[in-house]
Amino acid sequence: MTGGTLSPTPSEDVHESPSRTLIAASFRYATWQFEDTTFWDEIDSASRVARHIEAVGPNLTYTAATSLAEVLAARDDGGLDAVRAYEQQYGVHPEVAIPAETLAGLARTNGLEFINHWRAARASLET
């Protein structure tokens, strides 16, 4: 994990919903690494991961770009088969809130950087 601090107070950033409508919402953005994988997370006020991105290697080959809202919608609309299909295309979404002690060790990033990686990851995974 890379070091850094993450503000305990969410900042006002622009969030892009799955329907591509921009809305103002409070999120914190963090990035971290484990072995050769880089992660970017959009974290809500309850410390849950709202959106999650993973990329492997120095060339940042995207392997996941998930949204909690999309996973829940898939579950509610289509059940377990829909969730499996979603995970097959976009990867697996983190299920638990991030503990405060872990949040403190994540490097902070900004909403624009997150959205740029989100768009690139989604484009890569949707082809």
Results as ranks from 00 to 15, higher is better:
A104M: 04
A50T: 12
V56A: 09
G111E: 06
A107P: 07
A104R: 10
E126H: 02
G105I: 08
A97W: 02
V49P: 01
A50G: 12
G4A: 05
A65T: 04
R122G: 04
A24M: 10
S17V: 09
A50Q: 15
G111L: 07
Y29L: 00
L6M: 07
G105E: 04
F27R: 15
S11Q: 14
A74N: 00
D81G: 02
E16V: 12
V71W: 02
D44K: 03
L112D: 15
T102A: 10
D76H: 05
A97I: 04
L103I: 08
R75H: 10
L6A: 04
P99G: 10
E95F: 09
A24K: 13
Q88T: 12
S11C: 14
Y90P: 01
W118I: 05
I115T: 15
F34Q: 11
L80G: 11
R84A: 14
H15N: 10
A25T: 04
G79A: 04
T5R: 12
R20M: 07
R20V: 09
E12D: 15
T61N: 13
T109K: 03
S47Y: 15
L106A: 00
R119F: 07
E101D: 14
F34A: 13
D36R: 06
Y86N: 00
W40C: 01
E12Q: 15
A100L: 11
A123V: 08
T102L: 13
V96C: 09
Q89E: 06
R119Q: 12
S124F: 03
A120Y: 03
D44I: 06
H15P: 02
S124G: 05
Q88W: 04
V71H: 05
E12I: 11
H52R: 09
A24C: 07
E95C: 08
T2M: 15
